[in-house]
């Protein structure tokens, strides 16, 4: 099965750092910009490097409006957000993708927008990205505990799971399948449905699993990372 996945107007990516939120957010935004007005809201104030807004140029060339922390991509380690983060609710673009920092502290910034999301409940979805190849994320219980912590801090409820089992360049079908098994276990424990499986674009055509596929282009990887020393 590989139906195209459809997303709501407000798509919020949450999960453990390293689960793949940033890469997925960029992919979603660039894809959405082909069809309508799109914003990417980088609300990650805990990562010093590798924020989605570090790809601002690529995003803007694709027609995505990028909203980012005040001092993102500078030398400053100052975790503040601009008032512009409310723009998606004022101007209602066709799609706004929110990329949230990868732990309960990072997710607490979502609380700022809680009232706005509450007003647009039917148009909002909160997607929890699962990658069991991350440390301390290798059991359903550990993932669930993080999910609940993030929900509490962010004052939202997760509406869907994204299977994103990956080991960066070493991802293969087994790793992807392990991601799905883990997401299925979390889904059984919580009743939260699985939204889709993210698959590196080169592997996507050979995917034979049960979920809609989200093909992923890796925008964040520097080319020299391919040199294994």
């Amino acid at each position: 099965m590989s139906n195209t996945v459809t997303f709501k107007r407000y798509t919020v990516m949450i999960g453990n750092f390293g689960s793949g939120k940033t890469e997925l957010s960029i992919n979603l935004a660039i894809d959405a910009a082909k069809k309508g007005s799109t914003m990417l809201v980088d609300m990650d104030i805990i990562n010093p490097y590798f924020k989605s807004s570090s790809k601002q140029q690529i995003l803007e060339q694709a027609g995505v409006r990028v909203i980012k922390p005040d001092y993102a991509n500078t030398m400053m380690d100052v975790p503040t957000l601009p008032a512009e983060i409310y723009a998606p609710f004022d101007t209602k673009p066709d799609r706004a993708v929110f990329d949230i920092g990868g732990d309960p502290v990072g997710a607490s910034v979502l609380g700022l927008l809680q009232e706005h999301f509450a007003k647009c409940k039917d148009e909002s979805e909160f997607l929890f990205v699962i990658n069991p190849a991350r440390p301390m994320q290798s059991t359903p219980e550990a993932i669930l505990s993080l999910l609940r912590e993030i929900e509490a801090k962010a004052r939202i409820q997760v509406t869907g799971l994204i299977c994103n089992g990956n080991l960066a360049q070493e991802t293969d079908m087994d790793i992807i399948a392990q991601g799905e098994q883990m997401a299925e276990a979390v889904s059984r424990l919580t009743g939260i449905p699985i939204k889709c499986t993210a698959v590196k674009e080169d592997l996507a055509p050979s995917y034979e699993g049960n979920y809609p596929v989200l093909p992923v282009h890796l925008y964040m990887r520097p080319d020299w990372l391919n040199e294994i020393l």
């Binding site: 390293g18 190849a133 991350r134 440390p135 990956n166 080991l167 070493e170």
Partner: peptide, 15 residues
């Protein structure tokens, strides 16, 4: 232990 996807800093801690 199977391979994990880790930040350098995390890997240093686990190592």
């Amino acid at each position: 232990m199977a391979k994990k996807l880790m930040k350098g800093s995390e890997a240093i801690g686990e190592a």
